[in-house]
């Protein structure tokens, strides 16, 4: 980001003295926020580690009940979406906002596809009685599997909510692109949403092996 030239007649908000100061404040704020996201999921990963340690074979068996292919497909989709997002930020910085616009649209499509796959997965699980904890009714399975599926639904559910929020944020970006609000001198929101999207992607990259690939 060393190539960015801040001082080109752009006026910072009233309480900042320079645009550079404002930009760095924004980026620091976004990173801090992302740290809280990671810590929040961190709690879930700790819970996962504890119960996997407690019931290793149950987790192994329960994992077999998940559809690895669908999970793998979603992983690829999210990685692709992250690539689009990174490119979109790049083009915004270069001032080619129409490219950025298309790429963000693509990212949204990937996200929607991801949610679609998730929807079919969930529906299938509901149908088979692979429900969290108390409601776990799957035939010939142990009761503790309910814990695995409890964690599965909480972890992927919370992740899906983050995807939804991401879609909302990207839609907001598109709107602002339409209004020509971004330029090589002002793109903090694009940068921020981009970073957010990468974190959501990275969380999935951890979720996928932990849930689908216990072997």
């Amino acid at each position: 980001m060393s190539t960015i030239n801040f001082e080109k007649g752009v006026i910072p908000s009233h309480h900042f003295s320079t645009v550079s100061q404002e930009y760095h404040a924004g980026i620091l704020g976004i990173w801090l926020f992302l740290a809280t996201e990671v810590l929040m999921f961190g709690g879930l990963f700790v819970a996962y580690a504890i119960f996997r340690n407690m019931y290793p074979s149950v987790f192994h068996d329960a994992s077999q009940l998940l559809d690895m292919q669908l999970g793998a497909m979603n992983t690829v989709i999210l990685i692709a979406s992250s690539y689009c997002m990174a490119q979109a930020v790049h083009y915004t910085q270069k001032g080619e906002t129409h490219h950025a616009f298309t790429l963000i649209l693509l990212t949204i499509l990937c996200a929607l596809f991801f949610l679609g796959v998730k929807y079919f997965e969930y529906q299938h699980k509901f149908h088979e009685g692979l429900l969290p904890g108390m409601n776990f009714t799957h035939a010939n399975a142990t009761r503790e599997m309910g814990i695995f599926f409890g964690l599965y639904f909480v972890m992927t559910g919370l992740h899906a909510i983050h995807i939804l929020v991401g879609i909302g944020l990207m839609a907001w970006l598109l709107l602002r692109f339409k209004r020509n609000e971004f330029s090589p001198h002002y793109f903090i929101p694009v940068d921020g949403v981009g970073l957010y999207w990468h974190i959501v992607d990275i969380i999935w990259i951890f979720l996928f092996p932990l849930l689908y690939l216990i072997g």
Binding site: E37, L44, G133, G146, F153, L158
Partner: peptide, 30 residues
């Protein structure tokens, strides 16, 4: 910044436990 997100997830888990019976705090299912 560091601790509050953990409270957030704890409360969410407890809410999920109450609404959907997730089971991770419930000794009766492990």
């Amino acid at each position: 910044i560091i601790a509050t997100p953990v409270l957030a997830i704890t409360l969410l888990l407890l809410i999920a436990e109450r609404l959907f019976g997730v089971g991770i705090f419930d000794a009766s299912i492990g």
